[in-house]
Computed example of a mutant assay.
Amino acid sequence: MSLTEKPVETPERLAFYQKIDTQGFTPLWAVLSDIITPEPKSACVPNLWKFNLAKQWLLEAGGLITAKEAERRVLILENPGLRGQSKITTSLYAGLQLVMPGEVAPAHRHSQSALRFIMDGAGAHTSVNGERTLMQFGDFVITPPQAWHDHGNQTTEPMIWLDGLDIPMVSFFDASFAEGLGADEQAITRATGDSLARYGTNMLPVDFEQTRLASPIFNYPYARSREALYQMQRQQEWDPCHGLKMRYINPVDGGFAMPTIAPFLQLLPEGFKTAPYRSTDATVFVVTEGTGRSMIDGQVFEWGPKDIFVAPSWKWITHEANGEAVLFSYSDRVAQQKLGLWREQRGLA
């Protein structure tokens, strides 16, 4: 007997298993190798979604159903190994949301944490707990758990962004709550830019007390994040597995910006090929700039601007950029680290 082998199923043993099964018992030795595995085992598989095709289908959906009727007009990115489960990884959700000119996605709130990564269009807004922000390409926007939020588009062009949520994680704990506000839009009680001014300049209000686990900043503008990468790349200090990779943080404690989802932004210089890397946090990548390819578990995926791809847990991955490239990504690393589960391994170039 071992963690990788099951005992022989004799007729006598099978008869015993059937007898105890009627009362809700199962012999551990018959399933041990399936539930405690030597390495991570998941149905999640590598995959890539082309943005141009997704945009075409989103716009088609825009003619079929309104944002208000749909509550959220979103096409879910379902992992091919997890079809029918609304999952892009075992623990995370991803979807592409469309808000057409003049539309409002109604105000609601829920237990799940959400991020928005702005992919197409500019100038639509999202409102979170009384503050409105205008969204530009590449912005990383947070909706904390149980925060009222709505989206609107007063521009003349469609707006598309990636939604990333911890829906599977919250469902696993049977802890989902949700409610609508009863109005399309919440009241705006704070000036645009208030949270970034209060918390995003290496200062905090003198009597600030943390009441939420998520960052008090809810829009991390891409222009600022990209400028930081540009300044840092001048040092030519490239991590062999990541290029130049930064994490979005909560300015209150320096931890990840969200309690269950870990967001990142990384720069790959022209012609750079990363050394093999794997970790236990399955990761969703969004190509913000550039073209290149990634090899995940032996499969090569060619990517371009705005494409989305996923790397499952504990599968080797390398990236190679043609010209300079920028990747946004998110995973459940922060949750795994809090539980003492996260592990990584670096290979040789």
Rank of each mutant, 00 (worst) to 15 (best):
E9Q: 10
L213F: 13
A70P: 10
W29C: 06
S331F: 02
S86M: 12
W238F: 14
R212Q: 09
R116T: 00
R343H: 11
L244H: 03
Q136L: 11
G298N: 05
L59C: 01
V8P: 05
S279D: 14
E39G: 06
G24F: 01
E344A: 15
Q154T: 15
L339T: 12
G81L: 01
Q233V: 14
A223Y: 05
V45C: 04
A228Y: 09
L58E: 02
G182N: 02
V206N: 09
V74K: 06
L98I: 04
E78C: 04
P259H: 05
K6R: 13
F218R: 06
T280K: 08
E60D: 11
N52M: 13
R343E: 13
K55D: 03
F173W: 11
L48F: 06
T66G: 09
L327H: 00
H110N: 01
K68Q: 15
S195M: 12
L265K: 14
K338I: 10
R247D: 08
E320K: 07
H151P: 03
V128E: 04
T192D: 15
S86C: 09
W303Y: 13
D21F: 14
V99T: 13
I167E: 09
L32P: 01
Q136G: 08
T155M: 00
K50A: 02
L115G: 05
A15K: 13
W238E: 02
E9L: 15
G81A: 00
Q18S: 11
W303D: 08
R212E: 12
I160R: 00
K315S: 14
T260W: 00
T201G: 04
D166Y: 02
Q210H: 07
E60V: 08
L204Q: 14
L53Y: 07
D139V: 04
T288L: 11
P205Y: 05
F309Q: 02
G164E: 03
K19L: 12
F301D: 09
Q345M: 11
A178S: 15
L53R: 12
A275R: 03
E12C: 01
L181F: 05
A325S: 08
V326P: 00
N47T: 14
Q233R: 13
P251V: 07
L48G: 01
R190T: 06
P38S: 11
Q236M: 11
E103W: 08
M246G: 12
L348D: 13
V300D: 03
A147R: 03
C44M: 07
Y330C: 12
S127I: 02
I217G: 01
A223N: 02
I35Y: 04
G182C: 01
V286F: 06
S215N: 07
P38F: 08
R13Q: 08
V128N: 07
I249Y: 06
D120M: 05
R198A: 15
V287N: 04
E227I: 10
G298H: 05
Q266G: 15
M1Q: 11
L28H: 10
E237L: 15
K68D: 10
H125G: 15
W49A: 00
G152V: 09
L213Q: 10
R13V: 07
I76S: 09
F117V: 13
Q23P: 01
W161S: 09
V8Y: 08
H242T: 09
F51Q: 04
L244Y: 00
E5P: 02
P38W: 06
F173H: 15
P46R: 01
